[in-house]
Design a binder for these strands. Structure first.
Length: 410
RNA sequence: GGGAGGAUUCCCGAGCGGCCAAAGGGAACAGACUGUAAAUCUGUCGUUGUUAACUUCGAUGGUUCGAAUCCAUCUCCUCCCA
């Protein structure tokens, strides 16, 4: 079939940021079978949204007939990449790294097809840890100029705050990875986030100098919002792909609530929706933009958590926001009939249900009309819950507009 | 090893020995407006059934009628020199 060049696809969807040899890369990618790699540092026990973009790229490449190699930074993770960091990463133990790597592999499988050798997973701990220091220095060291390295942005910033020798070596390690994969896996291309540019460049140059080989590098735009800030962060921290760390509901909500300005970009980067369909969504404006957001949230959730969960979460939010209310699986607190008979202070209950952190906060909320009991504003801060507040053993307490809580006698 | 500085309530960051539960900003939460967006405006933002009390200002002791503010010791961080 006359398929289009992935490069065009990637570019049209807005992934590509910088390329070492644009024309040659284009040429290379026009024929299937290119082995490329992307590195993932196991700094946490789950991948997050930032990684997700990389996974999407892998998938696009894979669909075009190229061979992805996911490199787990089991070895480099022990050093810590100083790029884009203002301070030194915390050192991790071998066990945590191992564990994290295993989690990554599992999650990655949801987007990239690793069956039947269609993609490869490697761990650079396998070769980096065996490295002999002197040999490595003699082998790799001569090809790197400290003067030049110091001019790189990623190091420049750190020079003011302090950069340890350990971290300074990160670039060499990553370059060595590329060289290793070039030699052992015929990998000729490294992709990565934009923050990886200098590290990737290091590898490309190393291969070219040492092996006179053909190596290319390509970076992607980091997922940022219209204000240029990194996306995928919430007050609670990163948006994780692991359902235990970020529930599918929260995950869905995150995308449902992206800025108007970011919806289309996210659709292109995070879903497989065809571009012409996305173009239709791009025409929407004002309130209609919500349709695009719903689709975005659904599609991304589907890729990460599967269709079943995506449907469930979608329904849950529809119940919650569009049908004015409650869904069946809203948070529930059980109280005993005795407690109700004795009279249960609403303030105490709010604390118990973790709706408020203290009774004082509860009082303030009630004073500000922020607490509802069975859809009626509670006015008395010292309201006592009694049997008549319950229908069918249930009462619904709402905090603000969105947070519903069921009280059940049981 | 020598020298300098710092540690304040979720975060950043003010803080004269009494008027400090502690300025200001951010975040957060509620209200108004709305489209489950953004922006804006209002209120709240240590605990306690509320002119007050109680627990907080790295830790432990001390000085004082009184300490986040002074002294001593300790812990941790940063920077400079070697």
């Amino acid at each position: 079939m006359m398929s289009t060049n992935v490069f065009d696809t990637l570019e049209a969807r807005g992934y590509i940021s910088q390329a070492t040899h644009r024309d040659e890369i284009y040429e290379k990618l026009s024929k299937p079978g290119v082995s490329f790699y992307i590195g993932f540092d196991p700094t946490a026990d789950s991948l997050h949204v930032g990684h997700f973009v990389q996974m999407m790229v892998m998938s696009h490449m894979q669909q075009a007939g190229h061979h992805p190699i996911a490199l787990m930074g089991g070895g480099t993770g022990m050093i810590g990449d100083p790029s884009g960091r203002s301070d030194m990463r915390q050192m991790m133990t071998v066990e945590t790294i191992q564990y994290n790597v295993s989690r990554f592999v599992e999650q990655m499988g949801t987007v990239v097809d690793f069956t039947n050798g269609r993609a490869t997973i490697v761990n650079n701990a396998d070769w980096l840890l065996k490295l002999n220091y002197v040999e490595f220095l003699r082998d790799i060291g001569p090809h790197f100029s400290v003067n030049r390295m110091l001019t790189f942005d990623c190091y420049k910033q750190r020079l003011e705050k302090g950069l340890s020798f350990l971290e300074f070596n990160y670039m060499l390690m990553q370059s060595y990875d590329f060289l290793y994969l070039y030699k052992n896996y015929a990998c000729t291309m490294q992709l990565g986030g934009d923050d990886q540019w200098s590290n990737i460049l290091g590898g490309v140059e190393l291969i070219r100098r040492k092996e006179q080989g053909e190596a290319f590098g390509l970076t992607f735009t980091l997922l940022t919002n219209s204000e240029g800030k990194k996306m995928g962060k919430t007050a609670k921290g990163a948006v994780w792909l692991d359902p235990n760390k970020t529930t599918p509901f929260e995950f869905y909500q995150y995308w449902r609530n992206v800025d108007d300005a970011d919806v289309i970009k996210c659709m292109k980067l995070l879903t497989f929706l065809p571009l012409d369909e996305i173009a239709e969504y791009a025409k929407l404006s004002d309130a209609a933009t919500n349709e695009a957001k719903k689709r975005l949230a659904y599609e991304v959730t589907k890729i990460v958590h599967g269709e079943e969960l995506a449907e469930a979460v979608k329904k849950q939010t529809e119940d919650l926001f569009e049908k004015g209310g409650r869904s069946d699986d809203m948070a529930t607190t059980i109280v005993t009939a005795d407690e109700i008979a004795a009279g249960l202070s609403l303030l105490d209950f709010l604390c118990r249900a973790k709706l408020t952190a203290s009774k004082g906060e509860g009082k303030r909320l009630i004073a500000g009309n922020g607490i509802y009991l069975n859809d009626a504003v509670v006015e008395d801060p010292f309201y006592i819950l009694t049997a008549r507040d319950f229908t069918a053993e249930e009462a619904i307490i709402r905090k603000g507009k969105k947070i519903y809580h069921r009280v059940k006698i049981g």
